[in-house]
Lab assay of single mutants.
Amino acid sequence: MGFKLLSKLLVYLTASIMAIASPLAFSVDSSGEYPTVSEIPVGEVRLYQIADGVWSHIATQSFDGAVYPSNGLIVRDGDELLLIDTAWGAKNTAALLAEIEKQIGLPVTRAVSTHFHDDRVGGVDVLRAAGVATYASPSTRRLAEVEGNEIPTHSLEGLSSSGDAVRFGPVELFYPGAAHSTDNLIVYVPSASVLYGGCAIYELSRTSAGNVADADLAEWPTSIERIQQHYPEAQFVIPGHGLPGGLDLLKHTTNVVKAHTNRSVVE
């Protein structure tokens, strides 16, 4: 069995187990497998329904001669939608809004960016022009300005110390501490036991640490421990890039980060 097929099978099995364990909360999309990078042309966006009122959005972007996937989250909030992270750029984010209108038909009224990198804030200006209120932590807003990236308009308070959590509509926002970046936030959907790890969490097929220019490698494993301790009931975990899975993604990420750190020390 090929690795790609095995990865998709694991996603399907995880979703099936969740649907059985929580039949009222989960209505997993039966329309197909989780979209992969090879299936999404740059400039297009796919939506994948995880649970009743919960979707991931998947886009792709060219970077350094390669094409990478990027995940975000959409959560229903009454007759409105909360968006977590842009679709990595203005063109993708405009396509995301169009796809949401086509498939869901509810307005996106608020959006949260989970850290300051372009795959999370690139497209904020498109959201703002569409009347979406954009939010991020003060740290993310400051770092985005320093980096020359787009800056969300509103500040999220109460997320300055490791372990801080605040309720934001249908989700809980959690600051686990520094990891992929010093400002990275985690998003949890309690009604569906869905954990969105953003770039602080890796997919299972990833074996290298990737972009760690703004990471705190020493603190990252401790931050992941905080996530595990705060959300032990999480059933569906979405990484910032690639295929979702279960809580095993947290341990896998820790292993990859520690291996990278150990290699760096040896070198």
Results as ranks from 00 to 15, higher is better:
L243C: 06
Y135P: 00
T253N: 01
T207A: 09
A129Q: 15
F236R: 07
Q61Y: 14
E267F: 11
D125V: 09
L247F: 05
T207R: 11
V146I: 13
E150G: 11
A87Y: 00
E225H: 11
F168V: 08
I104V: 09
G105F: 09
G242Y: 01
I74G: 02
T86P: 03
G123P: 03
V11Q: 10
I224Y: 00
G163W: 09
I201N: 03
E44D: 14
L159R: 02
I186R: 01
P239V: 03
S223N: 03
V189S: 04
T114G: 01
F26Q: 09
D248M: 14
A51D: 14
V257N: 05
L195C: 00
I227V: 12
K91M: 14
P232H: 05
N92T: 15
V132W: 03
L83H: 00
K251S: 06
E203S: 14
R120C: 04
I50V: 08
R141A: 12
V112H: 04
D119V: 02
D183C: 00
G105N: 06
L243A: 12
I227W: 03
W220K: 00
P239I: 00
I224V: 12
H241T: 00
L24F: 08
S208N: 15
S161W: 13
S62R: 12
H154T: 14
G198M: 04
R167E: 07
N184D: 03
E150V: 08
A87F: 00
D248K: 10
K4D: 06
D214M: 08
R128K: 14
G65W: 07
E219L: 08
N262V: 09
S31G: 09
D85Q: 00
S30V: 09
E101S: 13
V187I: 08
S30N: 12
L82N: 06
H230V: 13
L247S: 07
Y68K: 11
N184P: 01
K4H: 08
V67I: 09
T253G: 00
A51H: 06
V132Q: 00
T222V: 13
A15W: 14
S181N: 00
V189M: 06
T261D: 06
G89I: 01
L81Y: 01
A133D: 14
L106S: 10
V75Y: 02
A192Y: 06
Q229M: 13
T60Y: 05
R120P: 01
V132F: 02
F63I: 12
G245D: 07
S38A: 11
V212H: 06
A95H: 15
L106A: 14
I40G: 11
S205W: 10
I74F: 04
T261W: 13
S70N: 09
V42A: 11
S264Q: 15
R128C: 04
P107H: 09
Q49N: 09
K258P: 04
G53L: 13
D85V: 00
V108H: 02
L24C: 10
A209C: 15
S205L: 11
D164G: 10
I151M: 14
P35C: 11
T114W: 02
V266C: 04
H57G: 02
I224C: 02
A259T: 09
H57Y: 04
G158D: 14
A133S: 09
G65Y: 06
T14F: 13
D64H: 14
F116C: 03
E147L: 12
T182E: 09
D52M: 14
H57D: 04
Y68N: 10
A133W: 12
Y68R: 13
L250H: 02
I227P: 02
S137T: 06
Q61T: 08
Y188I: 05
T114H: 00
H241N: 01
S139Q: 10
R120L: 01
A178S: 09
T207P: 11
T93C: 03
T14L: 14
G242S: 03
V108L: 12
V132A: 09
V266G: 12
E33K: 12
I238D: 00
V146S: 13
G53Y: 05
P35W: 08
A129D: 14
V189G: 01
Q229P: 04
R206D: 11
E172Q: 12
I40D: 09
A136F: 03
G158C: 04
A25G: 10
V265E: 10
L185Q: 01
G158S: 12
L97D: 01
L173G: 01
E203C: 05
L195A: 01
A19N: 15
L10D: 06
L73V: 09
P232S: 12
I17D: 05
E39G: 08
V171P: 00
K4M: 05
I20V: 09
V112C: 04
S7F: 15
V256R: 05
A66W: 14
D79P: 10
D52S: 10
L10N: 07
S205V: 14
T253I: 03
D164F: 06
V189R: 00
A95R: 12
A59G: 12
S155R: 11
S38C: 13
I84A: 10
R142H: 10
P152W: 02
Y12I: 13
L173I: 09
P221S: 11
G245Q: 03
V187P: 03
H115D: 00
N211H: 15
A200G: 04
K258G: 08
N255F: 09
F174R: 02
N262P: 06
T14D: 13
L10C: 11
H117F: 00
L73Y: 00
G246T: 08
T109S: 15
T261V: 11
C199D: 04
P23Y: 08
S208V: 09
